[in-house]
Design a binder for these strands. Sequence first.
DNA 1: CCGCTAAATTAGCAACTACTTATATTTTAA
DNA 2: TTAAAATATAAGTAGTTGCTAATTTAGCGG
Lengths: 103, 103
Amino acid sequence: MEMTSKLIDKDEDIMQASLAMKAIAHPLRLKILCVLAGSELSVQDIVDSVGTSQSNISQHLAILRDKGVLATRKDANRVFYRIGDPRTLKLVSMMRDVFCSRE
Amino acid sequence: MEMTSKLIDKDEDIMQASLAMKAIAHPLRLKILCVLAGSELSVQDIVDSVGTSQSNISQHLAILRDKGVLATRKDANRVFYRIGDPRTLKLVSMMRDVFCSRE
DNA sequence: CCGCTAAATTAGCAACTACTTATATTTTAA
DNA sequence: TTAAAATATAAGTAGTTGCTAATTTAGCGG
């Protein structure tokens, strides 16, 4: 079985995992993901929740969308974002278990 | 209880989590962590396992050490590294569950 | 002391990131 | 058709990252 030697041993998996983490490892992007955890939201909703410029949010959304983390739906002149990759959702929820203070 | 709204809601926790992920979200550093999962290793062992220059490995080890991810032990003229932060160990093992292909 | 090995540090640089400001696109509403 | 709102894109730039090559530090054996 050889379970103890390496945690991940395929270079391809290493690459995949580190790309995914890189997409998430930014305070604004992580906050976007946390805000989107419950429901889909329009860009303006996200701007209001997260708190930076519309342009900046839009650029971070594009990064997450292009990497397949977020999916979008257009309704009239608004665009709604949601977490489209179940692995990311799981990853973010695991982050909470590991890093969040409890009270 | 309000469980569904946000996954992580404290900005401080967001910061902590994204800093931790940033440290890990690099192919060489993730590989180092995977190699160190089972046992402590000397720098030269890590260089051999991971495969880049000694200088490069040393710099990545310094990053991980300075962020509290790795701990060190010196023996004669060699330095042994191990994963010193249990949260990181848990995080990397969770990464495997989420991202690794199974056969 | 000297030479050898292991590891860390430094300097320099190309590439990339994250932001700001400004502009463009799309859609609705008057 | 024009104005306004929502979103995206573009351009410019300061700051950061990741590497290489060269040097330095430290411990060991002769």
